[in-house]
Amino acid sequence: MNKSELVEALAARNGLTYKKSEEIVNIIFDSMSDALTTGGRIEIRGFGSFVVKDYQAYMGRNPKTGEVIKVKPKKLPFFKVGKELREKVNS
């Protein structure tokens, strides 16, 4: 399922237009991106949570050439699936 299929599924379920459903889906994911970008965490009950982890600079290697390179400090988002969804996916 991609975003437009999610929009279609939402429109089919609540009788809204595609455009209105798209607006809502965009608000949700834009809000979530903004929250992570400003350093916040997200917790969606029944779904899961997102946190941003900070990485210090480190010396790494190009796995193809073996060349030693400096990796700059970076931030990465992580998702932890909620218990309910984890169990449902595995059942």
Binding site: M1, L10, N14, F29, M32, F47, F79, L85
Partner: peptide, 25 residues
């Protein structure tokens, strides 16, 4: 509506399908 969006996503994932949200992940 927000509840519905996450319900649809949960049901899709439960069914083993993936969800691709361009610009998010």
């Amino acid at each position: 509506i927000v509840e519905m969006v996450f319900d649809i996503m949960k049901n899709t994932l439960e069914g083993g399908d993936k969800i691709k949200i361009a610009g998010f992940g």
